[in-house]
Design a protein around this nucleic acid. Structure first.
Lengths: 364, 364
DNA sequence: TTGAAAGCGGTACCAA
DNA sequence: TTGGTACCGCTTTCAA
């Protein structure tokens, strides 16, 4: 790339006489709107109008467009944002981009926001609230139009930052009783309860749970909470719980966790796992031990990841529309922006419920 | 959030008398550097210096910091970028965020660039070159400091845009003979050849290949190319190739593809799959047919995804350091920026080789 | 339909 | 060590 770019243009660059506009002058940095204007023989404002799609005489528009193409002009978004007082950024924070659940949500957000010219600023919190706080602070510097967060647990500073920013906020993947602003998601507690009822309905009584050991994955903890609560409600409260590995636990933790569970409680009839990933690892461990799933032991997952549908036996799971959470979050943010545009004070506390359902498959 | 933000401040907002600085005036929008300066009793420049970490008297610095904290001041990145002529963005384009390979690369990039205060602008091309072009155009508007792309195939317009932008570019995940600027990756052709040699060395002669049907996944096509070429070199060129499903094919395509392959060439001894995802699906299909892997048929994957290590049988694959590609790309970009800073014309065409290796496991 | 001038919120530069 | 001034490149506003 060396030699093919423009040389630096510092603030002190003198406005020396430029080459004729049709000849590209490599010493002057990338073309600016004024260059386009000069070449087209119009004012900057007319160029700006053409770019914004405002009304301009057709012949003028054509001339300007030609100049833009000839120079390869790309408008500077920072200057536009500064001048107009509005950026085109939307900040998104997810616990992990590696999880297909969250990457699907990001895709959904992107799909709904991109057509409106909005650009995602994606941050990966790695499940740490203090990292989330740092990212929020860093993203606020770019004056995002709105912010989407994952979960409803945040540091007090994060909440303060968000509140002060005055920007619409959506919390995703949870069902907070007291959202910062709006929320799009569902109750992981309730979803887990439903899975317990399903397993009990299938005739299982001695049901175990496999999840992560750390407190970082709040949604995982909520699922455990739902499990405990529903087991108690059904009078099945002898606790067979294995918590192993940093949350969120993945395929590789499922095996050891299942091993630990079977070693401690060999007569377990069914196991509910915090995710399909751990369920898959658990099933593989059963295979290695010569246990047949679901005949010898039933295993259920959560999330309806691709592996759940493809593996043999296919995995009974809770299906969640991760992409849909992204789409709905996008729609919610757009509505908030629209309302703001109109000067309408949209009510805070709006919650959008996303459906989930137990998907019966072979494994349980 | 309604009611907790500041009201809009338009460009025409009059500079009405403000409330005493210690009282926060909600009618004036978020605090600006001048507000901080006034509260601290210094000039804007001093505030700017404190923020940039330049030398300022200790007592002054403390006063300024106090004012910043009191007002909850967050500097506007767009204004800073405009003024200094340098943004803190790095653009990254990957074919898909859903693939753990690419999300790992993004994590690596993030890890190496974030400590330098750089912010990733992530784009998902969905494997389409025209979408890549659109994204490049959109990202260039934010004046990124540098750009990381995936692969070495791009539209002519993309190349022109990049060249004109004058920004350092790194192409990842490939080994182009003529990179736009720099490249970090490896040859998928060579890697596939090595896997063929491994399978042949294991005593297999009738080896099949499973890949996607579309032309979008260039790296997948390169692997097929390597397969063909090495098979021919070994004199094993009866072609058992199944191409099925949109690239990149996933777990769910592996099964049907394996079925098709076995139906057409029942005496196949080994199958090389374009990725671990398809290999996993293929193995599941073998299970369903009562075929034992690897005794009845060997199956190999590519990429060393987590599922390859966890599934039974564990999957023989080609391991690639996806996270490392991100780290090295970050380092390469930083070096390019550094060189530029020093006014050194770094040579174009730098290529950083990332190692890969066949990982023998149970499946082949 | 178009243009001129002002200014968005910072930073570079030079002077004090 | 600090402050004043002139911008960065664009959009807003208002006048022509």
């Amino acid at each position: 790339m060396a030699g093919c770019g423009w040389t630096d243009r510092t603030n002190s660059a003198s406005s020396i006489t430029r080459m004729p506009p049709s000849f590209f002058d490599p010493s002057a940095g990338p073309p600016r709107m004024s260059d386009v204007a000069r070449l087209a023989g119009v004012s900057k404002m007319t160029v700006s109008r053409v770019l914004a799609g405002h009304s301009v005489a057709e012949t003028t528009r054509e001339r300007v467009q030609q100049a833009i193409d000839e120079l390869g002009y790309v408008a500077d978004a920072a200057a536009g944002a500064l001048s107009s007082g509005r950026s085109e950024f939307v900040a998104v924070l997810v616990p992990s981009l590696a999880s297909s659940n969250f990457s699907d949500t990001v895709r959904g957000l992107s799909a709904s926001l991109e057509p409106h010219g909005l650009q995602l600023l994606i941050g990966d919190t790695d499940y740490h609230l203090d990292r989330e706080e740092r990212l929020v602070r860093s993203m606020l510097r770019h004056q995002p139009r709105c912010i989407a967060l994952t979960g409803s647990r945040h540091t007090e500073s994060t909440r303060t930052l968000l509140r002060r920013s005055g920007v619409p906020v959506v919390e995703m993947w949870d069902w907070p009783s007291d959202p910062i602003d709006a929320a799009v998601g569902f109750s992981n507690v309730s979803a887990a309860k439903e899975m317990v009822r399903y397993l009990a309905h299938k005739g299982h009584a001695r049901i175990g749970f496999i999840g992560g050991a750390s407190e970082l994955d709040r949604r995982g903890l909520d699922r455990l909470k739902g499990f405990r609560s529903q087991m108690k409600a059904l009078g099945l409260d002898d606790e067979r719980i294995v918590r192993l590995g940093d949350s969120p636990i993945t395929m590789s933790h499922g095996g050891p966790a299942m091993a630990a569970l079977l070693d401690t409680w060999p007569d377990t009839q069914a196991v509910m796992c915090v995710s399909d990933m751990s369920a898959f690892g658990a099933i593989m461990e059963c295979h290695r031990r010569g246990l047949v799933v679901p005949d010898d032991i039933a295993v259920a997952g959560f999330g309806n990841f691709e592996v759940a549908a493809c593996c043999t036996p296919s995995i009974t799971t809770v299906s969640v529309d991760a992409y849909g959470i992204g789409l709905r979050t996008g729609a919610t943010l757009l509505a908030a922006l629209e309302a703001r545009e109109q000067g309408i004070a949209e009510p805070s506390g709006k919650r959008v419920r996303v459906a989930y359902s137990v998907v019966p498959r072979e494994s349980a």
